[in-house]
Amino acid sequence: MPTPSQEPSVTPSVAPSLVPPFTEETAIAKVRAAEDAWNSREPERVSLAYTPDSRWRNRADFPVGRAQIVEFLTRKWQKEQEYRLIKELWAFRDNRIAVRFAYEWRDAAGQWFRSYGNENWEFSGAGLMQRRFASINDLPITEAERKFHWPLGRRPDNHPGLSDLGL
């Protein structure tokens, strides 16, 4: 058994098996781990999956580093109420993963939206995301058009994914 000084320097939120280079299996697991973290709506928890100097492009926002990521996500989830997200692997290679995603949320006035997008991720050797580029479009929907109905938090394993839902 290795001593603490011999153990890999991986943040506790990153499983040692989820480091590059990715296989299809580990890329899918990495995508699901990210989805689960974002569905927690806990900015500090989410930020631990990123390098301390991680660089983002999220629409017109450009957070750099974990503190700015926490600030960004705190604002995001104050605006985007009842947030539920599904991510799906699109492609992967070496230390990069591309995903497509959709999430549903409502604003303070009660208007529901489905936000669609794509993300490109680049990871450090320790499995932490060092760059994230997101392109997102918002579509107003009625409450009857919603497809994500699980209780807030992690999407149940038996809930359909994006392709199954025709998204």
Rank of each mutant, 00 (worst) to 15 (best):
Arg84Asn: 02
Tyr116Ser: 12
Ile136Leu: 05
Ile136Tyr: 00
Phe72Ala: 07
Arg41Ala: 08
Ala27Met: 12
Leu152Trp: 06
Val19Ser: 04
Arg41Phe: 00
Arg154Tyr: 06
Arg75His: 15
Arg55Tyr: 03
Ile69Thr: 15
Arg41Leu: 05
Gln111Trp: 11
Ala49Gly: 12
Glu80Ile: 11
Ala102Val: 13
Gly125Asn: 08
Trp38Gly: 02
Gln111Met: 10
Ala108Gln: 13
Ser47Arg: 05
Phe22Trp: 04
Phe62Val: 02
Leu165Pro: 09
Ala102Met: 13
Val31Cys: 04
Arg154Ile: 08
Pro16Leu: 04
Lys79Ile: 06
Leu18Tyr: 01
His159Asp: 10
Glu143Arg: 15
Pro2Phe: 09
Ala29Asp: 02
Asp164Ala: 14
Glu122Lys: 09
Tyr103Asp: 14
Arg106Glu: 10
Pro20Phe: 07
Ser135Ile: 11
Tyr50Lys: 09
Leu152Lys: 12
Thr26Glu: 03
Pro8Val: 02
Pro43His: 06
Arg154Asp: 03
Lys147Glu: 14
Ser40Val: 00
Thr142Cys: 00
Gly65Tyr: 05
Ile136Val: 11
Gly110Thr: 08
Asn120Cys: 07
Gly127Cys: 07
Pro140Tyr: 07
Ala67Pro: 01
Ala60His: 14
Phe148Leu: 14
Tyr116His: 14
Glu44Asn: 15
Phe22Ser: 04
Tyr103Ser: 13
Val10Met: 13
Asp138Glu: 14
Ser13Thr: 03
Arg45Met: 12
Asn158Thr: 12
Val99Thr: 15
Trp38Asn: 12
Asn58Ser: 13
Arg84Ile: 04
Ala126Lys: 14
Ser163Gly: 05
Gln81Trp: 08
Met129Ser: 07
Leu18Cys: 03
Arg93Leu: 12
Ala102Cys: 13
Ser124Arg: 03
Asp36Asn: 15
Leu128Ile: 00
Gly127Thr: 06
Ser115Ile: 07
Asp138Gly: 07
Tyr103Ala: 12
Ala98Asn: 00
Tyr50Ala: 03
Ser9Lys: 11
Ile86Asn: 02
Leu73Cys: 00
Lys147Ile: 12
Glu82Asn: 13
Val99Trp: 05
Arg66Thr: 01
Phe148Lys: 05
Thr142Asp: 04
Ala126Pro: 09
Pro21Arg: 06
Glu25Lys: 13
Gly125Tyr: 03
Arg154His: 09
Phe92Gly: 00
Pro16Met: 01
Glu145Cys: 02
Trp38Pro: 01
Pro63Tyr: 08
Gln68His: 13
Ile97Pro: 06
Gln130Gly: 01
Gln78Ala: 10
Arg131Ile: 03
Ser5Tyr: 01
Val31Lys: 08
Ala98Ser: 00
Ala126Asn: 10
Tyr116Thr: 11
